[in-house]
Nucleic acid binder design. Sequence first.
DNA 1: AATTTAATCAACCAAATGGTTGACTAAAGT
DNA 2: ACTTTAGTCAACCATTTGGTTGATTAAATT
Lengths: 111, 111
Amino acid sequence: MSDTQKLTAILKAASDPIRRELLTLLVQHGPTRVTDLARHFDVSLNAVSKHIKILEAAGLVRRRTEWREHLIEADMDPVRQIDRWFQDLRSVWDRRLDVLDDVLKRETEDE
Amino acid sequence: MSDTQKLTAILKAASDPIRRELLTLLVQHGPTRVTDLARHFDVSLNAVSKHIKILEAAGLVRRRTEWREHLIEADMDPVRQIDRWFQDLRSVWDRRLDVLDDVLKRETEDE
DNA sequence: AATTTAATCAACCAAATGGTTGACTAAAGT
DNA sequence: ACTTTAGTCAACCATTTGGTTGATTAAATT
């Protein structure tokens, strides 16, 4: 999977309120069973199970299966990739503002 | 619109590769016309126009309309909101790791 | 005067998304 | 032995998404 695809998967996974809440619960309480996670939402267990699979596919969450109990835990590593993308974007943006500053300064000096 | 809804809109907007590429083009080249943006993609002008409206609704882009020419420019402010959410998440995560460290240290001391 | 250009709007379409219920497997509790 | 518990899988459904084409408005070019 390309970096672009990975980033797309991460951002899409993070763009759903329930999935963000799941991540918050996981970083707060550590590894948690699917059923215990589902308790916090008013959708079915099945729906939560699906959300978790999406988070898992994006790498935001890992699963430790002990027989019928699945312990889910957050993985913050992919978040760094998001950070990097937005930081890059902003740094290009800032550089452009600097260039604009230079242009304006030079124009002022020319007067 | 609630903060959660805003964040959802921003992340959803950023989760599409074409829209991310549009943002990159805009921070690199500054305000650009819709047609000139569309040139970079192999989808129709209409499709690009729709993408821009989604970015606009999320506040990631602003529009200056001069008669029939629409100048689109990036707005980096909402990006800060994304950053903040992920940073918060990670800081909670890091704090939990610290607590875990403490627990382990105390257990070691008890031996 | 005729045509090209810039962009949106509207209608339509296929695929993806987020939800549901019901069936299933196998462990654990009574 | 029976029932509850944990979780997934499969099928289904409504809505959203991302794309298309065609029509429209009014400016700019020839």
